[in-house]
């Protein structure tokens, strides 16, 4: 198992209180598998990624959780720092913003390749190979460019090339396809699979079309797990009312709204907007085959 994750409680310190951001979200990820984390804004997806990477903001703490990477607990900044960019690789949301504007694509790639121990002429050769592998027909043209000379799509491909300059065992991609059209999304996901066939991949997205391209999907709402299972079945036949609402909001399903239906909060984060909620609701775990969902009503 590459990753065994249990969030425990991730809370943020506010001026006069603490707010729970993620509550007992747990999953594991095997080599070569892809897991999509989906949910609305504020559902805790990015906090989960940050907690794995040890990059939680200073006012946010993780209590009672555990992150096992290849069976070893990821504790201490030194262990994490030695793994980041080498075996534990992050692909950001916005390639253009992520790249250092004062450095060329070459300098970015050299830095990552030096971490792998490459020196001299091997640096340029490998950097060009990596750019060619992510679909640049003439890598020699791109390698000397600064980020502002790249389009959004090109910058996103450079970030994949950078990620490919590693021995990635676990890849975390945070909303990697935001703002791309459908064809570009499909190409991006295919490229990820092609470049990292052995790595475990955690894809954070709010895009159902991207989740469909992953093997497994975990649906989050308000920091809690709502439903989990093989993507094809989960997205075709959702069981939790929240997943049903997400699917119903797609354009092809008529963009159905999920308005607030009741004033009071309930046992489930979706309670106020849930069309199926009742006072007797219990977010107990249900299971059928590989599918799991946390709702007593469905």
């Amino acid at each position: 198992m590459v990753l065994e994750y249990d969030s425990g409680q991730i809370t943020a310190g506010l001026a006069r209180s603490r707010r729970t951001l993620v509550d007992r979200a747990a999953f594991s990820l095997e080599e070569g598998r892809t897991l999509a984390l989906i949910g609305e804004t504020g559902s805790g997806k990015t906090m989960i990624a940050m907690s794995i990477l040890g990059l939680l903001p200073s006012n946010v703490t993780m209590e009672g959780g555990q992150v096992l990477f290849l069976g070893q607990e990821l504790t201490g900044r030194r262990t994490l720092r030695s793994l980041l960019g080498v075996e534990l690789v992050y692909i950001p949301q916005n390639g253009l913003e992520f790249l250092d504007p004062s450095r060329t694509v070459r300098r970015h790639l050299y830095d990552s390749l030096k971490k792998l121990g490459l020196r001299g002429k091997a640096l340029e050769r490998t950097a060009l190979e990596k750019l060619a592998a992510v679909g640049f027909p003439d890598p020699g043209q791109v390698i000397g460019k600064y980020p502002f000379q790249l389009s959004g799509g090109m910058a996103q491909r450079v970030t994949i090339a950078l990620a490919a300059c590693s021995r990635a065992r676990l890849l975390i991609a945070d909303e990697p396809t935001n703002g791309l059209d459908h064809q570009a999304k499909v190409r991006f996901m295919a490229l990820l699979e092609e470049q990292f066939p052995e790595a475990a991949k955690l894809v954070i997205t709010h895009d159902i079309a991207v989740a469909k391209l992953c093997q497994t999907t975990l649906v989050l709402c308000g920091g809690r797990m709502m439903e989990r299972g093989p993507s094809a079945a989960l997205l075709a036949r959702p069981r939790h009312p929240y997943t049903k609402a997400l699917i119903g909001a797609l354009v092809e399903n008529g963009m159905q709204e999920t308005p607030v239906l009741r004033p009071q909060n309930g046992p489930c984060p979706f309670f106020r907007r849930c069309p199926e909620a009742a006072p007797s609701c219990v977010p107990a775990r249900q299971q059928a085959g590989d599918a799991q969902w946390w709702c007593s009503r469905s």
Partner: peptide, 17 residues
Amino acid sequence: DEATSMLDVSTQANVIA
């Protein structure tokens, strides 16, 4: 102008409505 392209599907549907 691409005002909902950064939003999740359910927020997009609510904002458009």
